[in-house]
Design a binder for these strands. Structure first.
Length: 447
RNA sequence: GGCGGUGUAGCCAAGUGGUAAGGCGAUGGUCUGCAAAACCAUUAUACCCCGGUUCGAAUCCGGGCACCGCCUCCA
């Protein structure tokens, strides 16, 4: 690596030079889904963003240790299980598998570790015990809470004072809490809820503690990059920091990367609006590379508006590129240098893709510029788009004989300058989903 | 109200001090019976508004305006 990587760090809202704890290795933890329903395009974006980041880190020579968790114990899972008359485990397993399949279908590389909360209960209990030992938490009525006031840096990530938070937060009324901002490390099991045994009675982990426990297990008490959607900044990531740093007295994560969220037709994607698009639905309508490229042609921190119009535009631009790649003869350029420098500047995939389009359009890249194309496409995870881009909507096989007949008939009409008849025949073919194209070598067709 | 973000051509979107990447669309031309495709060319004297700093600002500072997100579960 002869150049430096800069990353916008949400901790201080500044772009910083990236210096990993170990010179040649990067440890990265990304918050994965709570598996209580099918994953949606927001999950897709996050996964694609961090997939390209990890790919690039590898590309510039780092070894990476990439962890993405499953939150498979949670109130919403329990609720869903009750609604469907199933066990929580059945629900979480189902959606975990779905998620793994969705990620594969999106072309995202599998993280090195994908731990689940349910598989890390001992680690979580240990951590809660340590927090209690150090005096940062308390048990009350079978629940265990984190004492926010004891952690002086609380609010560092979201850049708010405790007073400001308390003033502005819609607080859950809970008589067990000593202070309204305190949050649960362990929740006592209610009747018919799944539970694990603990020193404080039967219960389950609170939301937040799992990420502290699992990141510590797989990456240590201090690691390089922590990622997730920007909606997780408060309270989730704030609470993770408190839980972890009160024990370790070290910086939990050195760099925080938060990806922007998704809008659907300029409206926030949300349950209440009812405009959630699942990954499966998205992939049914659009080739994975079109989806990836839509996300990667936006900077990872800005919101992305998802619409058929946008995806259609990306598709068209790719089809144009594809044609140009075939006819160009270029073999070398400074393309690599440019896109690498774009990526070194806070993973600017949008800029990198700008060069990609420009260079192909200018005839400086072709199918023959294999190394440069391959390196770029593999880093973006879009390798193979040239072959796949049309696969998503190929029309059923048409009757070739019929078409040949139409072409012959039409060409005869054209020879006789019977233009009206010729146009009618072209329209007829169009109705069959076939486009007739006259070129120097005669008439060809495509669907 | 607190915190954060955004405002760049018809639409989308890069650009964090040196004179506006890229995509889609549009327009003109070549080609064509006409189209389509392809190819060539054109497409923001200008970056929400007003001030300021600077030789120089979309970029920095101050003040507005507008929109959005988080603050409740969320990627």
């Amino acid at each position: 690596m002869d150049k430096d990587l800069y990353i916008y760090n949400s901790l201080n809202n500044e772009k910083e030079k990236f210096e990993p704890i170990n010179p040649n290795q990067v440890s990265i933890y990304v918050c994965g889904p709570t598996v209580y329903s099918s994953s949606h395009m927001g999950h897709a974006r996050s996964a694609i963003v961090f997939d390209s980041i990890v790919r690039f880190l590898k590309f510039i020579g780092y070894k990476t240790r990439y962890v993405r968790n499953f939150t498979d114990i949670d109130d919403k899972i329990i609720q869903r299980a009750n609604e469907e008359g199933k066990t929580s485990e059945e629900i979480s397993e189902k959606y975990k598998e779905e998620y793994i399949q969705d990620m594969k279908n999106l072309g995202c590389a599998t993280p090195d570790y994908q731990p689940s909360v349910s598989e890390n209960i001992p680690e979580i209990l240990n951590l809660i015990n340590e927090i209690l030992d150090k005096g940062y938490g308390y048990e009350k009525g079978g629940d265990v809470y984190f004492s926010v006031k004891k952690f002086s840096r609380y609010g560092e990530l979201s850049n708010q004072s405790i007073d400001a938070i308390i003033e502005n937060t819609r607080l859950e009324l809970n008589p067990n809490k000593e202070y309204d901002l305190d949050f649960a490390l362990w929740k006592k099991a209610k009747k018919n809820e799944p539970y694990w045994e603990s020193p404080w009675g039967n219960g389950r982990p609170g939301w937040h503690i799992e990420c502290s426990a699992m990141s510590r297990k797989y990456l240590g008490e201090s690691f390089d990059i922590h990622g997730g959607g920007r909606d997780l900044i408060f309270p989730h990531h704030e609470n993770e920091i408190a839980q972890s740093e009160c024990i370790s007295n070290q910086k939990f994560a050195n760099y925080w990367i938060h990806n922007g969220l998704i809008n659907i037709n300029k409206e926030k994607m949300s349950k209440s609006i009812g405009n959630i698009i699942n990954i499966k639905e998205g992939l049914k309508a659009w080739n994975k590379n079109i989806i990836r490229i839509l996300f990667l042609t936006h900077h990872y921190r800005t919101p992305v508006d998802l619409s058929d119009k946008k995806l259609e535009e990306i598709k068209k631009s790719l089809l144009n590129l594809k044609k140009k790649l075939k006819t160009n003869n270029a073999t070398s350029s400074n393309f690599k240098e440019l896109w690498v420098s774009a990526m070194l500047d806070d993973f600017n995939t949008a800029k990198a893709f700008g060069y990609y389009f420009k260079y192909i359009n200018d005839g400086k890249l072709s199918d023959k510029s294999e190394i440069e194309l391959k390196e770029f496409e593999e880093t973006m995870g879009v390798y193979g788009w040239r072959d796949e881009i049309l696969a998503s909507d190929e029309i059923e096989i048409v009757n070739k004989d019929e078409i040949e007949k139409i072409i012959l008939e039409r060409n005869k009409a054209r020879e006789n300058k019977e233009w009206e008849k010729a146009d009618l025949l072209r329209e007829k073919a169009e109705k069959m989903g076939i486009k007739l194209v006259d070129n120097q070598n005669g008439t060809t067709w495509e669907n």
